[in-house]
């Protein structure tokens, strides 16, 4: 499975997004605000999920505005930290 799809499923499942399917989320869609509608507390959950599922340290997310901008950006960030992902 593509990492992008894996992340979409993870967000829908863990953030309990109702009436959203992985195919509804485009890789470049904004995750926050006008896009998927996530908020800052969802960002906290995403950080915790990345730590739990991919072993990524939060201190690597200083530029978090870019990291959280889309599924593609999130996947690129995971790959940059975990090339095998």
């Amino acid at each position: 499975m593509r990492l992008e799809d894996e992340l979409k499923e993870m967000l829908i499942r863990e953030l309990k997004l109702v009436d959203v399917k992985p195919e509804d989320i485009k890789d470049e869609d904004p995750l926050f605000g006008e896009g998927l509608g996530l908020d800052s507390l969802d960002a906290v959950e995403v950080v915790v999920l990345l730590q739990k599922n991919y072993g990524i340290e939060v201190k690597g997310m200083e530029n978090n505005r870019e990291v959280f901008s889309s599924i593609k950006a999130l996947a690129d960030f995971v790959r940059s930290k975990k090339p095998q992902a």
Binding site: S40, A43, V47, V58, N64, R65, F68
Partner: peptide, 11 residues
């Protein structure tokens, strides 16, 4: 700040 500062606070 980005994400209301919460990611920085979590860090």
């Amino acid at each position: 700040g980005p994400m209301g500062g919460v990611v920085q606070a979590l860090q």
